[in-house]
Design a protein around this nucleic acid. Sequence first.
RNA 1: GCCCGGCACUUUCCUAGC
Length: 385
Amino acid sequence: AYTFTICIKILGRAGRFDEARALWRQMQEFCEPDVVAYSTLMDVLCFAGRLNEARELLKQMKSRQCRPDYVVYNILIHKYGDSGNVDAAWEVWKEMEADGCVPNVVTFTSLINALCNGSKVDEALGLLDEMVERGHLPNLCTYNSLIGGLLKSTRLEEAQNFLQFLLTCGCEKPTSFTYNLFIDYYGKNGKSDEAYEAFLEMKRKGISPDVVSFNVCIDSLGRAGRIEEANALFKEMRERGVSPDVITYNVMICSYGKAGKVDEAIHLFSQMIGNGCEPDAVTFNTLIDIHYKRDRIDEAWKMFKKMQEMNLHPTIVTYNILVNGLGKDGSVNEAVDLFHEMKKRGCMPNVITYNSILDCLCKNNKVDLAFKMMDDMTENGCRPD
RNA sequence: GCCCGGCACUUUCCUAGC
């Protein structure tokens, strides 16, 4: 069961879900799966977004008198919370307690995190109190979730209070995770100086910046158009032995794009390939957008072709960039065609797609078509904003 | 008793608005 579990986990992480399931079947011929095996498969199924199968597995466990432990429930709660379905997460929580299984720190943190992501920070803070009342000690993950939630609601002072608490009274000291939250917050809110200051503060506290620290800090400088300083950090990270990842390159490319330095962006793209870093869909989306916005339309479509040659599927964002680009330069029919094309390819338009196409239709006096599009929009469960 | 297989926290791309 040991060996099988490890293999199932590896397959799952690699996105080879059906093989993981097949191995699971094979395993049952050899031995009865234990709780850990169940939870591993549960995690794989949830990771794949196959929640119904995950629920089914939970039922199966119970019927085979393998008592689910808290990990099994935690995985489900986390997944529901992650997909924004806090109510379903609570349902699982209730089921868990009804089955005589006690929620632990991870259970609480998963839900706190879900509430924070849904901008229900006050409920999250309430849950923190309840957790303490029930005798569970919040840990660093719990506090990081809360700090992230507070920052998302721009409640900076409360977030800083938690940081102070961690620095002075908490038994777990803050890590790069904690500081990254602050750096990111400042960067996203146009405070690149403060972001950089938080980055320095973290170093002063003896915490080594990790790849995410550099990524968020570079991003904040890039947003502010401080491309030279972003580039300096890009250099610094390598000097410190922190390897840039695909996100680092994406952020750098995007920063150069914002600064209008298209050639440098393209250069970075070749550099990343040269360094063995595989571009992903975001890389291409970023480049396509840069090209389109600089009226290098042929180049944009070349990139679109190239990404498919590299077996990267266009995402909703790819189509949005192209639909928007076509609309902006007056190619109304082409924009509408692509709009239908994306649906045909199984990529459902979202609000952004509709806004782009409506904007283009209205500006080109195709009001009747625009109204038809509005209907189409509501039919697709997208409400006009 | 400890370690050995399972769970929770941070980053990038697109519209319009601010």
